[in-house]
Amino acid sequence: MSTGKWTDYINPAVQNMPPSGIRRFFDLAAEMEGVISLGVGEPDFATPWHIRESCIYSLHRGRTSYTSNQGLPELREEIARYLAGQGAVYDPRRELLVTVGVSEALDLALRTVIQPGDEVIIPTPCYVSYIPCTTLAGGVPVTVATRLEDNFRLTADRLEAAITPRTKALLLCYPNNPTGAVMDRQSLLAIAEVVAKHDLLVISDEIYDRLTYTGRHTCFAALPGMRDRTILLNGFSKAYAMTGWRLGYAAAHPDFIAAMTKIHQYTMLCAPITAQVAALEALRHGQSAMEQMVAQYNRRRRLVLQGFKEIGLPCFEPGGAFYAFPYIGHTGLSAAEFAENLLREEKVAVIPGDVFGPGGEQCIRCSYASSVDDLTEAVKRMGRFIKNRTAGRARVVYL
């Protein structure tokens, strides 16, 4: 079997998988001094103190054991209460599963419902793990590029055009990473009609549901007829600044949750109890701190949009999450060239839009989960970079 190369033993699906484009730029930035990073999608706030304190107290009390595979019963009850407020009612005993981050919930959902050759429609630009995780589950990712003229929303006609007899599921993420796009209720109802017509499942990643600025978030599972054909994913990383706690959850029909729990109990067993205690405190008493953080993100969103306008960087208005997705095609550079040159010349780290799939080739992702001072300086440096590029192109044309 072996030809002398250890790679012969590695699954070809893993060998052919590209490394994360986000991490590549993060690693480049880490090697340089004075870099302002707008790259990694992580809150710059620490987890609120009362959440951390609840965990310290739980450790003093010796709460260091396993929990139920599905998670602490009291946490599932609080999650169910929160989702009911969004219009999606779930039984905390049979229809909720606490996971190690939303990333595990996504992996479980895909491995539970996808059989080899099943197609999964993924609107792009999308979070970088969606396509590889679909492939690892044995599925076939079918990308549907959303368009700037549609404010990066998936439209019902573009969804229907991508459906084939092998289509099994639709993977949604709104508010969206990387674009910041949101879907209003009417747009989602049109998507739901297509989903029902073709008897599809929906995996709806709603990790940014509380980070909306232009209207109320619509939970996909709360739409008429969508609850039982939707696997709803959510978590605590973004709204409560709890990325390192690694805690998420899935809500779905009991048949899906039972199947997902089988995989979960053999691979993870349960999410860490201390992180579950933190999530419980966040749901019970974290509303005020969360709202303050969201208000700060909104302030930064407006600052970045105004700054981009002043330096001549076109950008549609993101309605959620904490990302801006400006257009850089007019600079004459590809997204990768723009990001690499900006990092080396002005020490600002952004992510090229093409790492998020079709539709992002002439854009860059900028996270505004940074301080106002850093954002102000970053926009200033980007303006200087664009001005120098434009001036250079003008001189070349003149000569």
Rank of each mutant, 00 (worst) to 15 (best):
S2C: 11
K5E: 14
N11P: 11
P12R: 04
V14G: 09
V14F: 05
N16P: 07
M17F: 06
M17R: 08
P18L: 14
P19N: 09
I22Y: 01
F25A: 02
D27P: 14
L28I: 12
A29K: 06
A29L: 07
M32T: 13
G34K: 10
G34N: 14
I36Q: 01
L38H: 05
V40R: 05
G41K: 02
A46K: 15
T47P: 08
C55R: 10
I56H: 11
Y57F: 14
Y57V: 15
S58D: 12
H60L: 15
H60V: 15
H60M: 15
G62S: 09
S65M: 12
L72F: 05
L72G: 10
P73Y: 03
E74P: 04
L75V: 07
E77W: 00
E77T: 01
I79N: 00
L83T: 04
A88R: 00
V89N: 03
Y90T: 04
Y90F: 10
R94S: 13
L96P: 02
L97Y: 00
G101P: 09
V102T: 14
T112K: 00
I114E: 00
P123W: 01
T124G: 04
Y127V: 11
T134G: 02
T135S: 08
T135G: 07
G139M: 01
P141H: 04
V144F: 03
V144W: 00
A145L: 09
D150Q: 09
T164A: 04
R166H: 12
K168S: 07
A169P: 05
P175V: 09
G180E: 05
A181W: 00
V182E: 04
R185E: 15
L189F: 07
L189H: 08
A190R: 12
V194Y: 02
I203T: 08
R216D: 06
H217Q: 09
H217R: 06
A222L: 05
D228V: 09
L233A: 02
A239P: 03
A239D: 03
A241V: 08
T243K: 03
W245T: 10
G248I: 00
A252Y: 01
K262C: 13
K262E: 15
I263C: 00
H264D: 07
Y266C: 13
T267N: 14
T267W: 05
A271Q: 01
I273G: 06
T274E: 12
A275R: 01
Q276R: 01
H285Q: 13
G286P: 08
G286A: 08
A289T: 15
E291W: 03
M293C: 11
R302S: 14
L305Y: 03
K309P: 09
E310Q: 12
F316R: 12
P318N: 09
A321V: 10
Y323V: 15
Y323F: 14
Y323P: 15
G329K: 01
L342V: 11
E345S: 14
E346Q: 14
A349V: 11
V350F: 03
I351S: 03
D354Q: 08
F356W: 04
G357W: 02
G360T: 09
C366D: 05
C366L: 12
A369V: 11
T376A: 06
A378C: 10
K387I: 07
N388Q: 13
R393F: 05
A394M: 10
A394V: 13
R395E: 15
Y398N: 13
